[in-house]
């Protein structure tokens, strides 16, 4: 039985629920979880019910890393830290945007905790608005495709690099579609002393507009097209990159999602898709994926 109990209000096929389950099952009972506001927090804790089988706290949207810092400091001061793992699990909005300050401070202070970003590439809980993690040309409710727009014109913020620049001893990317790999990385991150970070790709069927049954399938396409590189960084050095043998063109990933559909129907869309392909190509070169 998972430590994330059923009966929660996540969508059928929810990527955040998968992520939460994998994190808890990788880490076990001796874990304290801090959540910022977001889908995972809201659908798991409608008072008086909670899906969390471990101690859990939600404070505000932008302060999960600061709250986690405080939990860590308290356990140390009380002499109760032992092997208890402290994990903050937050969405991309809470992590890359509004929570960036608190994360920066927590990593710079060097608290012994792990921050896991569950990245579904938009502010999903409030209705699919763009965030700093929304990829190029994704259509969201605040960056919609339209007569004169191909959707989000901005590039995805490179959060793992920002964390690595803080001197974190362990940074990794993962995906809910590659569960054993994700759990291995989460476990490793929790075991490494100091502030560690795992950035998890989480395909959201509701926000990205695909059938709930395809969550894992879409996640695999992201990796197989090099749109989501899987790698680890240990003390700032990239290690253990997942290489791709038969890399697929990005169209295979884009065409199964409603948020990119406009690229296939609008005039000039094909040209714009090349820019997305360029991102995948850059990933391959930069991370040495082939």
């Amino acid at each position: 039985m998972s430590l994330l109990k059923p009966g929660h209000r996540g969508c059928a096929g929810c990527c955040d629920a998968l992520a939460g389950k994998f994190v808890l099952d990788a880490l076990g009972e001796d874990t304290i979880v801090v959540s910022p506001t977001g889908c995972l927090e809201v659908f798991t804790t409608p008072y008086p019910e909670s899906a969390w089988g471990v101690p859990w706290i939600h404070s505000l949207f932008e302060n999960a890393a600061a709250v986690a810092s405080g939990v860590e400091a308290a356990l140390k001061a009380l002499g109760k830290k032992n092997n208890t793992k402290i994990v903050a699990i937050g969405g991309d909005g809470a992590t890359l945007d509004i929570g960036l300050q608190a994360i920066s401070g927590a990593f710079e202070r060097g608290h012994d905790f792990t921050y896991i970003c569950v990245d579904n590439e938009a502010y999903m809980n409030t209705g699919v608005q763009r965030s700093g993690a929304t990829p190029l040309y994704a259509s969201t409710t605040t960056s919609p495709a339209g007569k004169v727009s191909f959707g989000n014109p901005l590039h995805k913020k490179n959060m793992p690099a920002i964390i690595a620049a803080h001197g974190s001893p362990y940074v990794a990317t993962a995906s809910v579609a590659y569960a054993p790999d994700m759990m291995r990385k989460v476990k490793k991150a929790a075991e490494v002393k100091g502030p560690t970070y795992v950035h998890v790709h989480a395909p959201c069927c509701t926000g990205w507009r695909f059938e709930g049954s395809k969550t894992v399938e879409v996640g695999k396409l992201a990796v197989e097209t090099a749109m989501w590189p899987l790698y680890e960084m240990e003390n700032g050095v990239i290690t253990n990159v997942r290489k791709l043998k038969n890399r697929k063109p990005v169209e295979e990933y884009l065409k199964v999602q409603g948020r990119f559909k406009h690229l296939f129907t609008m005039q000039g869309g094909t040209e714009e898709i090349k820019k997305i392909q360029a991102i995948a190509d850059w990933n391959v070169k930069h991370f040495g994926m082939e």
């Binding site: 059923p6 929660h8 008086p48 909670s50």
Partner: peptide
């Protein structure tokens, strides 16, 4: 606060 796993009361 709430007891852990109490969402099991909700049969989805």
């Amino acid at each position: 606060v709430a007891k852990p796993g109490s969402t099991r009361a909700n049969k989805t």
